[in-house]
């Protein structure tokens, strides 16, 4: 029965690491998107209110 403990632990790792990476990627993306929103907001207030996502100019 103790051997099954290793099996469960291993599959716990198999689930946790990809999930962890996915969650971390989502969190990092959300932060960048929020900063981008702030940046665009500041820009819109400052000038003509362009909402371009890509590098303007």
């Amino acid at each position: 029965m103790t051997t099954n403990l290793y099996l469960w632990a291993a599959y716990g790792i198999f689930c946790a690491i990809p999930l962890g990476l996915a969650v971390s990627l989502a969190a990092r993306r959300r932060r960048v998107q929020r900063q981008m929103g702030e940046e665009i907001g500041a820009r819109g207030k400052a000038a003509n209110g362009g909402d371009e996502r890509r590098a303007p100019q």
């Binding site: 990627l25 990092r28 993306r29 998107q33 590098a55 303007p56």
Partner: peptide, 18 residues
């Protein structure tokens, strides 16, 4: 997903540089 994150970071940096 990781590549999209990097592209968005680039876009943010470009926005800030502009």
């Amino acid at each position: 997903a990781r590549m999209q994150l990097e592209r968005e970071r680039d876009a943010l940096a470009a926005l800030r540089a502009a």
